[in-house]
Nucleic acid binder design. Structure first.
Length: 231
DNA sequence: TTAAACGGTCACTTTACATCA
DNA sequence: GATGATGTAAAGTGACCGTTT
């Protein structure tokens, strides 16, 4: 199995709308329920009858079996299979167990549910896409909140620098007597400054701490930290 | 070692169907 | 009840990647 496929933290159709959509062999699907369940030994009898009932209900809505029209309507339009709740539940259970299927699992699941392996494959494909979409939404929200927090923190730090500069100008003596900000610590070996509860400072450190107040970016805290302390 | 064939997956898209106003 | 808008899920398509030959 491919690594990226397994990494669930998780393409383009160029088909022309003018071109007639082909109805592949893949679409000439599902046999009637009674035929399907001949090869469904893994499913309890009660479940089978439920699925059969659901199938029949759907068939009734469609007004004909797919075997007759090869999965397509009289006018050639493709009929769309809606999976029953039971089928979906089984697929969901299986998905929770393993988000990707090997050919054997796919075939077994298809047989159990009375579907074609291709349908099982497509279901898992779409399910992975839905999972990824949800995860992306969650990630997006998280990053948004991070961005807001960092923006606010940056604003606060810039304000603090301005105040300190002003203080330095007005009363240098008082400024020199100030104890350093308690949130800043200096590494004894490399003399780099880090803010143990401040992610933006750490980020600035990683970048070499070259940002200045003038360019509006995150301020380098080194000048503050190396301020000589009076005993 | 390189390249073609092949299979699996993904991203994007189309389409059928369900639901709701 | 008919109808159009909208959402959702099944399925089609091409690209990409890893494996095999």
């Amino acid at each position: 199995m491919m690594e990226r496929a397994e990494d669930l933290r998780l393409s383009l159709s160029l088909s022309s709308p003018l071109a007639p959509r082909t109805h592949h062999v893949a679409m000439l699907f599902h046999a009637p329920p009674e035929k399907r369940f001949l090869e469904m030994p893994l499913l309890p009898a009660a479940k089978r009858s439920e699925i059969v009932a659901a199938d029949e209900e759907r068939a009734g809505l469609r007004g004909g079996s797919d075997e007759e029209d090869g999965g397509c309507g009289i006018d050639g339009s493709r009929k769309k299979l809606r999976l029953s709740k039971d089928q979906s539940a089984v697929l969901e259970d299986s998905f929770r167990e393993h988000p990707t299927l090997n050919p054997r699992q796919k075939a077994a699941l298809a047989q159990q549910l009375g579907l074609r392996p291709r349908q099982v494959e497509v279901w898992f494909q779409n399910r992975r896409a839905r999972t990824k979409l949800k995860q992306t939404e969650v990630d997006c929200e998280f990053l948004k909140r991070c961005c807001e927090t960092l923006t606010e923190e940056n604003r606060r730090l810039q304000k603090e620098v301005q105040e300190l500069r002003a203080l330095k100008l007005v009363s240098p003596h008082l400024y020199m007597n100030m104890s350093p900000p308690t949130t800043l610590t200096m590494c004894p070996s490399c003399e780099r400054v880090s803010n143990t509860n401040n992610s933006s400072s750490a980020a600035a450190d990683r970048r070499g701490g070259s940002d200045t107040a003038a360019d509006g970016g995150i301020l380098c805290h080194r000048p503050i930290a190396v301020r000589p302390q009076q005993s």
